[in-house]
Design a protein around this nucleic acid. Structure first.
Lengths: 350, 350
DNA sequence: TTCGTTCACTGTAACGTTGCAGTGACAGTA
DNA sequence: TACTGTCACTGCAACGTTACAGTGAACGAA
């Protein structure tokens, strides 16, 4: 119960707290080897762990960065969180992981809590188009990397954006379908609230245009007003597929906003008594682990997650440690189309 | 950059820091309404956020609990983390989420870091059979709930264990298969290192015995020495299915250690040119979101996650706040078999 | 008038750590 | 012998907050 403090260690080793502190902070050369050994032994025997609150208070620094994701219930974010954590650990940082559940209030509350915990570096995976709710803290010195969100006009000056080029990714996916000969395509998504969702639709429309196809009416209207979380997006895809496939001239190719949604679409295709690939081609986005395990394995657009996580951490580390007048920048990585078995040429009779 | 402290607020409002502190700590009745308003306005205008390190240092309390999971890359843990977080938030607590990656050193390191952050309540989802590495901290007052791990002989006195009855769950799954008429069953798992994996195999064997079937040779030997992480367990299932189904007398029913593994098994079944349910029945464990989305939807054993998360938090809260001489206990919840379409009677000709 | 009480606020001493500015002992130099 | 330097260590003040004890003004009662 009674915590072991640096004083207890000092007394046990017969030195002053300062000496213990010196040892703890890499100044072991300031003492005799035998003193050092006595102190180390005392630390060991008492099981002393420095009180981090006191240390943070005193030094003003923290070896912790914050990570805010929409939901770890989504394997995409879960996987990303692991990469970020590994990258941070390798740089000597800890990660504090928070779930915003795509709720702006919760997101803001978490960020303020991280700030008051002394955290000055943050990786934010926000669904929100505007960053107004954090710009005040950024002015005070919060360093931030926005992930999976391309830079916007009104963004804070020092913001770093790391993202794939969503427009290109979506074009890649869509062009794959048009290249296979599909003429009637649909885009399935929840409300296009976030920047990258808009970009993905833009890429989809651009690819259609390039193939000489109309883009009107290709956006599934079912979710326009709804707010689907990540877990529910599969259910949304299922519903969308059922509705789309019961139309007079159903689409033969469907581009989904992400893999969870695409898996739902595949399920909906089956619900409608059809077969994925043979009757309807489906493309996802993200390349989550399950994309390759699904039946049929999902054609999808892969994000280089590990690289992106490493970049996020190294940007943050540099900024938190230097705190020079580092300006914002934007890193757009190229996505990669992974062709598996959920896409095929359209059937001749459809 | 320059942080706003309670002193700045006090000066701006023309009061002492004590008065600001009183307002902050729910003692607003100690001041005039007009004073209160002045202070509130100053807080608002300066954007003051109390420094949590200082507060923790001073009070010795923390409104944060720790959550250590094997890997948020696994949707099972991701989902659980969300439930824990929601339950904690509802009780006024924050959650600090850590990934052990099933690495004992990393797990211990995280727990010690949580302790030195002033955290005194922890939900541990450990894969390790022994809790020796945390018992020292528990003696000093760390309150801990072990999740998904049944109580063991050598456990610390104050430990709370919350788990489903894994043996019963596995019996439920296996009896479902024998009830359908399956005679040749296999159990697919990575190394049976953890308590609950052993229990699940025990339940599997017990069900076989009850059905008058031999249990020798039913444990897939492929992973005995390997250490598979959660993400890789799907790959393991795939490999297991391929190997098992190429035998002379292949099993007609497979019980997998968890859903990710079961999904891998399904994929392996297809790799072998067979069909899930029709040729080989597959049962999983956990009922992750994807179980219902898979094709075919997976028959699996469901854990009442939300209830378990709420119980974990309320136990922890009571213990952290009272810190009376609360003794350990063990809560075993009953799992539920969810029958979907990955199981069917064996084919007559096999 | 004097005493006591209430009220609205403030002063102060911690909490555990850090890192600079000492301090005294001792050795080496002039 | 006196001075200078190095060495090994220590004293002290601060970081921002909290909560208890304390203060002085205003008012009511005897």
């Amino acid at each position: 119960m009674a915590d072991v403090t640096i004083q207890h260690v000092a007394k046990a080793a017969g030195v002053s707290p300062s000496t213990v502190s010196n040892l703890l902070n890499g100044r072991a050369h300031l003492m005799l080897p035998e003193t050092r050994q006595r102190v180390e032994q005392a630390i060991e025997e008492l099981g002393y762990q420095p009180n981090r609150s006191a240390r943070n208070l005193r030094t003003g620094r923290t070896r912790t960065i914050g990570l805010v994701v929409p939901s770890v219930g989504n394997p995409f974010w879960g996987t990303f969180a692991r990469y970020v954590e590994s990258a941070a650990l390798a740089e000597g940082y800890n990660v504090l992981l928070c779930n915003s559940e795509r709720d702006p209030n919760r997101e803001q509350r978490y960020i303020e809590e991280l700030w008051s915990d002394g955290i000055r570096g943050l990786v934010l995976c926000s669904s929100l188009p505007s960053l107004d709710h954090v710009s005040a803290l950024m002015k005070r010195g919060l360093q931030m990397v926005a992930f999976d969100r391309t830079a916007q006009i009104g963004d804070p000056d020092t913001l770093v954006s790391i993202s794939i080029d969503n427009t290109v990714g979506s074009e890649l996916a869509t062009t794959h379908l048009t290249g296979l000969g599909h003429q009637r395509l649909a885009f399935v998504s929840g409300a296009l609230g976030s920047v990258n969702r808009k970009d993905r639709f833009r890429g989809f429309a651009a690819a259609l245009e390039r193939a000489g196809l109309p883009s009107e009416g290709t956006l599934w209207p079912g979710a326009a007003e709804q707010r689907f979380g990540d877990v529910e997006s599969a259910e949304l895809g299922r519903q969308a597929a059922r509705e789309l496939l019961s139309a007079d001239e159903p689409p033969t190719g469907i581009v989904a906003i992400n893999d969870m949604c695409a898996l739902g679409v595949c399920r909906g295709v089956r619900d409608a008594g059809l077969e994925v690939a043979k009757d309807v081609s489906v493309v996802g986005f993200d390349d989550i682990v399950l994309a390759d395990l699904y039946d049929p394995p999902l054609t999808t657009v892969r994000q280089p997650m590990q690289d992106m996580a490493a970049m996020a951490i190294s940007e943050l580390k540099a900024r938190v440690e230097d705190s020079g007048t580092s300006h914002g920048r934007s890193l757009l990585l190229r996505p990669e189309l992974i062709v598996r078995e959920s896409t095929a040429p359209p059937r001749a009779d459809r």
